[in-house]
Design a protein around this nucleic acid. Sequence first.
DNA 1: AGTTGAAATGTTATGTTGTTTCAAGTTTTG
DNA 2: CAAAACTTGAAACAACATAACATTTCAACT
Lengths: 192, 192
Amino acid sequence: MAEKSSSGRRRASDSEAAASPVAASPASESSFAPHDHDQCRVTAIAEVERLCAERGLRLTPVRRRALELLWESHRPLGAYAMIERLSAEGWNAYPPTVYRALDFLVTNGFAHKLHGANAFVGCTAPDAQHAPQFLICTECEEMREVVDEGVQAELRRALSERGFMATRLSLEIEGVCAPCRAGATPAGERLS
Amino acid sequence: MAEKSSSGRRRASDSEAAASPVAASPASESSFAPHDHDQCRVTAIAEVERLCAERGLRLTPVRRRALELLWESHRPLGAYAMIERLSAEGWNAYPPTVYRALDFLVTNGFAHKLHGANAFVGCTAPDAQHAPQFLICTECEEMREVVDEGVQAELRRALSERGFMATRLSLEIEGVCAPCRAGATPAGERLS
DNA sequence: AGTTGAAATGTTATGTTGTTTCAAGTTTTG
DNA sequence: CAAAACTTGAAACAACATAACATTTCAACT
């Protein structure tokens, strides 16, 4: 009921999950340092379950599995890569199936799309209204979602100064993370 | 010679036109207010010509025409839309032709790609190293490139605090511009 | 002017990403 | 249970982008 199905092209009138993408929120830090990723994943999924229950959203099997796949690592996952994964697991994974699941996750703030890479990641702060920065390391190919209050404040100021009412914001930053700069390979092991 | 041809997928080692996307630069203001777009266009193209001469880059006919098309308005133009335009004008406009021209413009900082819309726009500050913000109005469909020094400073701080060395940055903001909020239709006339 | 090597373009084909459409199944609600 | 709303299945297709290789153009140097 509260669910936005939203097939069809995006229109200006599509109501967003978050009223303003540049709202204030507690700083949610994460780094490229190694960490217990199991907990990462488990926590994130539990949180989404909670939010779905709270909001009357249906975390159906495909949607849940899609979310789990996004949380298998901090590497962005492409829609067609996800299709392959699901197919291998015996799902009926046509493109629309996966895009619909991803659309559900993104629309409700449980995942993000990285437009620069045409790929998706789980959201680390699904509860907050935020204007996240995505730090994408070209070495280890991991992505880190950062919500920096200083940056957000400046964005709010810059936008309001110009009388621009923002409804969607995407900030993607490619570069090299600290561990990779130091010659180390962080958290996830290297691909291939 | 100094030209980057860069066919093939982007690698981490691809040298960028700008060493750091978050370098300091003079504030270059522009608004959604009506303006003399002829001058906009003429100035921008003259500047690119100057820079090409200075750097030994070749602004060939397709590249030049592609740039002119980008500057016909402040609306982002898709690659295939450009193909249609060029074909109508009698060019041999296969996809690679246009993508190569766009790649030349983007690589050398004469144009930007908006990943959220898969579309391209001319750069309003081709000389500066900047981390531009793209304000995209969903009403009038125009885009404004803004370089806000405050935002840039915060980004530099946030990144350096986290030891992240950025090489590419993309900040796209969708929303409604001031004139549209006021009920007016700015500069360019409405589509259809 | 002719040669040569590098850069740019022409052309076909194909790869990747995302959507439309309608039928069929599932869940919720009265 | 039946109706309504939501979700998924399935095929086809549309939009976006690149691979690969042939050909042409250009600049530099005899």
